[in-house]
């Protein structure tokens, strides 16, 4: 199968702050902050591999809001959000973004982020909660669903240039 090469061992547990499950919004934000620094680096180093040229260089998710991840304006309609999600899926889903190990891992991570953003923004209730939280904070939040803690944490490892 395509995955499981021992050289690309990556573990999901190095996220720093207290691991909580389920996480309160505050702790979630705190937990993801350290990995974000390296998250942006992944795109630059992953771009060395030829297949990834097909994936347009996307916004670094380090500072991106969910709207920026989906590449839609804040006032986007739910129809816009659905279209944007599908358009990005056609580019970033591991099935289309490449089949070798390196890219399938990074595109899987990328796609999970897009999907998480979509899950929040396509649900009117979750979206309004998110919008309110964004207004209250100076810094936009990136994470919308539970279970993402380890996923972001894992990026911290996968995203190193090995």
């Amino acid at each position: 199968m395509l995955s499981s090469s021992p050289t690309s061992f990556a573990h999901p547990f190095l996220s720093s702050s207290p691991p909580l499950s389920p996480l309160s919004p505050q702790s979630r934000a705190a937990r993801i902050s350290p990995p974000l620094v390296s998250a942006s680096c992944s795109y630059t180093c992953a771009e060395d591999s030829p297949r990834l040229h097909q994936i347009p260089r996307r916004l670094s998710t380090a500072t991106a809001s969910l709207y920026e991840i989906l590449e839609v304006p804040h006032g986007a309609t739910s129809q816009d959000i659905k279209s944007a999600y599908r358009r990005l899926a056609r580019i970033c889903h591991p099935d289309v973004a490449g089949t070798d190990r390196t890219n399938s891992v990074s595109s899987a991570d990328e796609f999970m982020k897009i999907h998480a953003a979509y899950c929040t923004l396509s649900d009117p209730e979750k979206r309004s909660v998110y919008d309110r939280r964004m207004l209250r904070r100076s810094r936009p939040l990136t994470v919308g669903t539970s279970g993402l803690g380890s996923y972001v944490g894992r990026n911290w490892e996968t995203d190193q240039c090995w």
């Binding site: 199968m1 499981s4 999901p12 547990f13 099935d95 891992v105 899987a108 380890s150 894992r154």
Partner: peptide, 16 residues
């Protein structure tokens, strides 16, 4: 003890 499960696009399951 953190147990993490990962299913990749080819449906392979890994447990950490």
């Amino acid at each position: 003890i953190n147990v993490c499960m990962d299913i990749d696009a080819s449906n392979a399951l890994r447990v950490f």
